[in-house]
Design a protein around this nucleic acid. Sequence first.
DNA 1: GCCGTTTTCGGCCCGACTGTTTTCAGTCG
Length: 573
Amino acid sequence: MINSRIEQIFNQIADLMEILGQDSFVVNHYRKTARTIHRIDADIEQLAMFGQLKDLNGLGKASIEKIFEFIDTGKIQKHQDLIAEIPFGILDLLKVRGLGPKSIKLIYEKLNVYNLMGLKNAIADGTLMRLPGFGKTKAQNLAKGIKFIVATQGQLVISKAIEMSNYIADHLESQTTIEKIIPAGQIRQGCDSIDTVSIVTLANQQDFPKIIQAFITCPGTREIISQSPADVEITFANENISSKIIKAQLHLATADNLANIELINSSTPEHINQLRQLAKQNNIDLDQNAQTQQQIYQRLNLPYIEPSLRQGGNEIELAQKGKLPKVVQLADIKGDLHIHSPASDGRTPIEQLVETAIERNYQYIAITDHSHSSTIANGLSAERLLGNIEIVRKLNQKYPEIAILAGTEVDIHIDGRLDYPDEILAQLDFVVASVHMTLDCKPSQANKHLLKAMENPYVNCIGHPTTRIIHARPPLPLDIDRIIKQAAETGTALEINSNPFRLDLKASHGRLAVEAGAMLAINTDAHSKANLHLMKFGILTAQRAHATSANIINCQPLETLKKFVQAKRDRMI
DNA sequence: GCCGTTTTCGGCCCGACTGTTTTCAGTCG
């Protein structure tokens, strides 16, 4: 779906026009159009094909033309023209947290600051603070923002990395004869942040030069970092997937050495080093060709270790002791406990969400719309929530094959108070509680409100506990051990949010939770039926956390889930 | 740039909250 890219371009047109001081009503219009596109549940390309774009309120002739222009050419000329009109570094400034178009216009015009380096200097020499609206605190926050961006340069979230990988794979397939293309590396390991896209191909040796040629001439290739007869590394970018430049590797295998090449390129170097040491101790040649990866582990007297576990930690030691966890699989998931409907900011009608869940063989789902403090997400008042509970109860009669649970994603206020009174929460089947506001707070405060929320007998799960957005927003400064302890003691699940931009809890925190005996929930936080399929990313994170299905509340049958909810109420009321 | 007409151009602006600054930019989903 190209929806999100078009939405992004319209927003960027608005930002750039604002920086250039153009008509604010037109600027506003582009933002409004971006929001309209955001709310579309269908593939915008399909709508365009069937002439249905004009039916959307707010999309006029000029916007529709631009959408068609993008479908035809992959870009929008007005957007290109605006980018050409300003220094390129301005686009980086737009990514700095706490810095918007108005401020950028000001620092560009008054200080001639047009990139991250310029801003950094203006902060350091104090000139920034002489501008109206810029104090010491703001300067410090901006400095932090710059640091964060620099630290995450050249890194993609896994879904974007997969798009890059698929793009390159499609190109290779169209240009050459390849038997098999296998995404490897950090994607295969399920990392949440990826700096190198790694592809393994199976082909005949005589086709290698042609495949390498196709790889290094793939549209988007920037530079060749290294090249040998069977391995190439390049830098690569594709503006329509991400504005970032990343590394991409190609590893060519024949049928003889495929398993070995796959293994080496789907593990951390630390894991491979540990395997090499073990091989050396036992006088085994790790690089001797094998039929399968299983066979390589077998030679070392080890059970098969999945790529998601090959992190270079203690997985080999666990494997030797026969204590390798039987990590959770997608098929173990019995339901999704964090889903938004159009009652708040979801895009897919409840019935279609239910039908998609049935297609996924789920036994239950929870409809968890925002509470009223999330005004921008059209959060539900207590009255509207009660109405929605009724709707959900009735829907259960229509769909006897699945249990539709009435829930909420209730906001946690800065003092730990929840957005609904207990009498309302008591009527729900499942309650997710999440922080959405006051994200820049002190460590003591961040901990306190989560700890207090977990004390509430009706709160069953903490949604996206650290609130991080990968590469865009740092996590809350939590004492994660204390949070996990509280979760275990109160019978509250901690969410692994499957959205690839969140993956929150992250794997290392998830592993701490598993070790402490806290329950996890792998949810999608879906805002559309398509989002229900993000579950696979949460699964990868849970695998990296060494979680088994026993650690995951939504891998349990409905009766166990109900007992989990009831047990907390019995204990704490 | 779109809407809704006074059918040729005027009016439009997600909204509550925060933090920094002293009136408004940035943030949240």
